[in-house]
Design a protein around this nucleic acid. Structure first.
Lengths: 221, 221
DNA sequence: GCATATATGTTGTTTTTCCAACAGGGTACA
DNA sequence: TGTACCCTGTTGGAAAAACAACATATATGC
């Protein structure tokens, strides 16, 4: 897939045709950059006025506390974007963005995105509307994550996450994008305790799994 | 304070003058409505295309799980808004909005907010930009909340919350908007365990408190 | 003031999670 | 093929949180 095709799948450019995207990209003056696995794209404390769109690979939004505990806020796959909210404010970032694998990122200046360009490019209005929709969606996603974290027990956190993942992939059998440590970081629990709980859940017939492949057996909730 | 003055303090109308707001309100065709304490403004499963702005009182964004466990996502005070993200999508709400006390709410149709009006009202563009900023800020707020929930122990959750509240009110001594049960619901911990931990923290000299009044003694982090 | 209701704090017990250490399986690569 | 490394699962003991029950304090209404 070339850049324009990827961008067509991106929420920010939803509803724009190929040639319109090309035209827009001129106005937006984006830049692309490659990152090796584990390389930081944005570090905690940084500020930026660019949002990023993943053209290749995938990135993790992470935090580290004083004691080095890592927490994985979310993963962004190809076509997804990050730092939109950060770029809209003047604050320093409280999270870092790390390439989870070899990745290519397109950076767009936020002001160019949300301000109509001098040339009066007619697709710009769509872009702003998409921006509102994108932020709204990100908002609901974060609410979803809060929903998982709200659960008091490791089992309920796992069920909450696995259910949402099952729903997202529209199948009872699905593959998660995290290894065990990352999943634990995402759900903010301890890895080995989580493994133990997964075993118990499998013994209870709630779920079957093998590495990253899961099948949910219980009713939705 | 009259409505226009309150709206001037609202992020959505930031940077617009009194007479401009009056003009905008005509275009937006808002409606106001009163809610008694504990009355639901939006219920889980509802959809709406209106965002709400609190003119009087305050509202709580809450969730209930299967077993009736309540969790308090966030509080919105006078001038604050809610349901912006919900109104921008077609999804059903996963949270409910409840009046924490006798409240007056101004409802605005989201489409009228983010679509330029027929009359070509020049302040409309500011409104859209404010909408982007508002969503971004809400985004960062949710990230902040995730930050609290990420902490593994009750003590760390409390410190994380109290620090952010102290910072927000720009003073080591401050009043929190929650009673103990609400605070526990907000931090997703058990009330009595939280009380016990607060006592320990006071004994350790980290914090002094009496009901809703807190004074932090330790260094920031 | 008194009775009642509500909010907060305390204590002891049970359950869950955390932690550390290790074991087994898979994979990469010399 | 064998070795080293990483990922996953397991175990037992330590720590923390949840829970239940009660004690104390504060607020509310009569």
């Amino acid at each position: 897939m070339n850049m324009v095709q990827i961008l067509q799948t991106s929420p920010l450019f939803a509803g724009t045709k190929e040639d319109e995207i090309a035209q827009l990209l001129c106005c937006l003056e984006g830049r692309t950059s490659d990152f090796a696995r584990d390389r930081a794209i944005i570090e905690e404390g940084d500020h930026t006025d660019e949002l990023g769109i993943v053209l290749k690979g995938r990135v993790h939004i992470t935090r580290h506390d004083f004691w080095g505990n890592r927490s994985l806020v979310t993963e962004v796959a190809v076509g997804g974007s990050f730092a939109e909210a950060l770029a809209c404010t003047t604050q320093a970032s409280e999270v870092s963005v790390v390439a989870a694998e070899q990745s290519t990122i397109l950076f767009l200046n936020i002001h160019k995105v949300i301000t109509s360009c001098a040339r009066g490019c007619i697709f710009h209005h769509t872009l702003i509307e998409n921006m509102v929709r994108l932020l709204s969606q990100r908002n609901l996603d974060l609410l979803k994550k809060i929903d998982h974290l709200t659960k008091r027990s490791t089992r309920d956190k796992l069920l909450s996450y696995l259910n949402s993942e099952s729903k997202r992939q529209q199948s009872r059998t699905f593959t998660i994008p995290f290894d065990r440590q990352q999943l634990a970081d995402y759900l903010c629990v301890e890895r080995s305790a989580m493994s133990t709980e997964l075993s118990r859940m499998q013994a209870d017939g709630l779920v079957e799994y093998q590495r990253r492949e899961f099948t949910l057996h219980h009713e939705e909730y």
